[in-house]
Simulated scan of single mutants.
Amino acid sequence: MASLELTGRVALVTGATSGIGAATAALLAQRGARVVVTGRDSARGESVVAAIRARGGRADFVAADLREAHAVRQLARQALDLGGGRVDILVNNAGIYPFAFTERASETEVDDVYALNMEAPFHLVAELAPGMAERGGGAIVNVSTIAAACGVAGLALYGSSKAAVELMTKAWAAEYGPRGVRVNAVRPGAVRTEGTAGMGEFLDVLAAQAPVGRPAEPEEIAEAIAYLASDAASFVQGVLLPVDGGRTAVC
């Protein structure tokens, strides 16, 4: 039976200083991976790493602002150095999700959302997937959103950036799959994190539209990501896995 264990593998998780990313980093480390945690906040990043190490896991923190292409490429090199020349698992989780109606979005917001949500995953895959292919295997998991599948007023910018990620997921599966690299995506619904705390009651309103009727906890999304990163998903390729309490089933 294929295993969920990740012993001996190196994982890079972006946006891992809080929320889904932090939960994913902790779970991958718990299952045996050496994890490179990255984000912009060094204090929070070091805290995530310290918690992983306190539980016997292996992790390192690299500070990076992924809105700049050169910083993305530098992160890839640093992750390879920390991983002894390899990254076996890439989790593209970093993202920003401003809630604003289209006419109120500034040029800076548009540029930042697409740079971080779409361009950063593109550059990381370009830097790391070829090495995975040369070694004969690897797993890439992209984090999307139900806003990429369902029209939500105020989320055109965020949703469209993640819709691009979903298309890239399928294209990368076609591109790298024949060389042993599995590329999949998870599509979370409403999740209760530090980043969504500012949404207030709107988060619960969104969550109430799903059959489960509540927001997810970050750990519930992390479980799906860890599954897709593991050998248990060895025949899963190019999928967009809804982890949304059934929201898209009734969209």
Rank of each mutant, 00 (worst) to 15 (best):
D60Q: 13
L116Y: 03
G57N: 07
G84N: 15
R182A: 07
M1G: 08
E219P: 11
A164I: 02
A174I: 06
V181I: 05
R73T: 12
Y97V: 03
A29N: 05
G21E: 06
V113I: 09
E109F: 05
G19P: 14
T248D: 10
T145L: 12
E201L: 12
A185V: 01
I20H: 02
T169E: 10
A94D: 14
Y97F: 13
A133W: 07
S3H: 14
A153P: 15
R67S: 07
D65Y: 01
S106C: 15
L27Q: 04
M118P: 10
A105Q: 12
E219W: 01
G136P: 04
F61N: 00
L155G: 11
G151V: 06
G21W: 02
Y176R: 01
D88H: 04
G19W: 06
A133C: 08
G189K: 07
E175I: 02
L6Y: 01
E103K: 02
I96F: 03
C251Q: 08
V10G: 09
C150V: 15
A207N: 15
R9A: 06
D41N: 06
Q74N: 13
T145Q: 13
V183Q: 04
A171Y: 05
T193Y: 13
A229H: 01
A64Y: 09
M168I: 04
R179L: 09
D60T: 10
L203R: 04
R77F: 04
V37N: 07
S230K: 01
V10E: 15
H70G: 11
A174V: 08
R31Q: 13
V36N: 10
A2R: 13
V110G: 12
T102W: 10
Y227E: 12
M132R: 02
A69D: 15
F101T: 09
N93A: 05
L66H: 05
L203F: 12
Q237Y: 03
V181A: 02
S18C: 14
F122V: 08
S161R: 09
R86F: 06
I140Y: 01
D41Q: 04
V62I: 15
E220W: 00
W172D: 05
G8T: 03
V236L: 15
I146Y: 12
D204W: 06
A33Y: 00
V36L: 14
G198P: 13
A222C: 04
A115Y: 02
A224I: 02
H123Y: 11
A76C: 03
A29D: 09
V250R: 15
F61Q: 00
E127F: 00
A63G: 07
A115E: 12
E217F: 05
S3F: 14
K170E: 12
S230N: 05
M199I: 08
P98D: 06
S144P: 05
A190I: 06
T169V: 07
T248G: 09
A33T: 00
R31F: 04
S234N: 12
P121E: 09
R31N: 06
T102P: 05
E166W: 06
G200A: 10
T14F: 07
V91Q: 01
L228W: 02
E68P: 01
T248F: 08
R135S: 13
D204N: 06
R135P: 13
